[in-house]
């Protein structure tokens, strides 16, 4: 299988930031000819859908661009201190939420569950706060990347940070949905 160039596949310029509206428009227009129900090939549509997946996530998009522009660059490296601080808050918050979820699932009476409610509320607030911070940071990376200087170094740093942020974002969403009430 040839390597996919998601930007070319989608008919969009190669850039670290992609306009979500333009991406949706291109995807819909191309789907209308490439989807098997519209007379296309399953393999062609699968490639298009994969291209969209790569382009709609900041972390995957930056990494994909890095592979296209600077093949062989490695993502490993140190995280910025402020991201380390965020990590130090996300880990315990996720653990606390998971702990509450287990205790709630094990509880057999409404009263025992009610006693967990204050803790659940605190866990929810903390996760929502962290979720908002993660979203802000991802947005900041996206905004900064619109003025990319073309060097591999900046792209690598953004891709690395975005990868962590998106992973936390998914974990926070998951924990919030499990926390419920």
């Amino acid at each position: 299988m040839t390597r996919l160039d998601a930007f070319a596949e989608m008919g969009l310029p190669r850039a670290p930031s992609v306009d979500a509206e333009a991406l949706a428009r291109q995807f819909d227009a191309l789907s209308r000819t490439r989807h098997p129900d519209a007379g296309g090939e399953a393999a062609a549509f699968a490639r298009l859908a994969e291209a969209r997946r790569l382009l709609s996530s900041t972390a995957l998009r930056l990494r994909h661009l890095l592979e296209l522009e600077h093949p062989g660059t490695r993502l490993e490296g140190a995280l910025s201190p402020s991201l380390m601080d965020l990590f130090a808050a996300v880990g315990p918050a996720l653990q606390a939420a998971g702990d509450l979820e287990r205790r709630r699932a094990a509880a057999t009476s409404a009263l025992a569950r009610a006693l967990l409610a204050p803790g659940q509320m605190h866990a929810r607030e903390e996760l929502e706060r962290l979720g908002a911070e993660v979203a802000d940071r991802l947005e900041a990376i996206d905004a900064a990347s619109r003025l990319w200087d073309g060097t591999a170094g900046t792209l690598t740093a953004w891709a690395r940070e975005a990868a962590f942020l998106e992973k936390w974002q998914a974990q926070i969403r998951d924990a919030l949905s499990r926390l419920g009430l």
Binding site: L111, R113, A114, L115, A117, P118, Q120, R124, L181
Partner: peptide
Amino acid sequence: TEHLAAVLVDRALEES
């Protein structure tokens, strides 16, 4: 204790 449970949940929600 059903009512007591509901009171506690409501209170937690309100405080939040």
